[in-house]
Design a protein around this nucleic acid. Sequence first.
DNA 1: TCAATAGTTGACTATTTTACTCGGATATTG
DNA 2: CAATATCCGAGTAAAATAGTCAACTATTGA
Lengths: 158, 158
Amino acid sequence: MKLGTKGRYAVMSMVDIACHDDKEAVSLNDIATRTEISLPYLEQLFMKLRKSGLVTSVRGPGGGYKLARPSNNIRISDILLAVDVQIHTTRCEPNSAMGCRINHGRCLTHDLWDAMGRQMALFLNSVTLEDVVQGRLIEKSMHHVKKEEQENILKVVS
Amino acid sequence: MKLGTKGRYAVMSMVDIACHDDKEAVSLNDIATRTEISLPYLEQLFMKLRKSGLVTSVRGPGGGYKLARPSNNIRISDILLAVDVQIHTTRCEPNSAMGCRINHGRCLTHDLWDAMGRQMALFLNSVTLEDVVQGRLIEKSMHHVKKEEQENILKVVS
DNA sequence: TCAATAGTTGACTATTTTACTCGGATATTG
DNA sequence: CAATATCCGAGTAAAATAGTCAACTATTGA
């Protein structure tokens, strides 16, 4: 289970723009240089970000992209959705052949993956671009984790 | 970002075993029939589950696998780790070229993905096989989510 | 002891997804 | 009109996933 470059790059680029003055547009070339993401790939991503209404574009020399809304009004989940990064935890579509046969047709594990997906979605909904830029993440994450758990978490999350 | 069949099947199979009497072993053939997972694939998975000490095997006719510990002592994260399903949210290994260049070498998004990974790990650590078998998941997940958020969560989690 | 059952093991292949690249078109500025 | 930048569709290479295959070993019961 891993987060690919698409979602990661999209958020990185949006953070990059959010770090700049709202007045002037940021060109993909600049972002490409700073983040070391290839220009054509960025173009692909920003096509989607624009169509989802998260950024506005300015063409021609001196052009680039600006945030369409204040950074405290753009959630990380908005960005991920824009570039088609979704969280797929289950395969239990209605009437599907796969996965839902244990215990007389009821799928016990469905609820598990569903709960996990919701957990993640809640988190991604709760964090805004502004939060990331200002380093306000430890608060959103939880503090007091037991020593013994710490170790295991590192293994799981890698 | 999606959960593959490996992790899903491993947990499904473990749930299947947990649903049976502890005294008699459950054969992979039975699990394959009930879950519609192919036998060779199950063999591959159970090799790892056994080597990680989550199940014990009994060879010969009437043989199969049993849980090595009570189901309330097997966490979902244990199962996922056993079959090499980890959560990869960052690529920021020390001295890596990728991803950590914005803002004078400090990677703002690193904390974000890190927090998200921890969030998931905490959840998977908190749920045991017994919880899943007994349908005790809504408690572990959160209840009161605002109406407006519900809709967005469905989009993100898909 | 023999046949059937069931786990053990390593290697191999097909499919799908991801992560890109490429070529060209269009708009804007100086 | 030339340089800069966004727009857009299609195509490709690499990696990860999902699953197969063949052969071997241990155990049980007739």
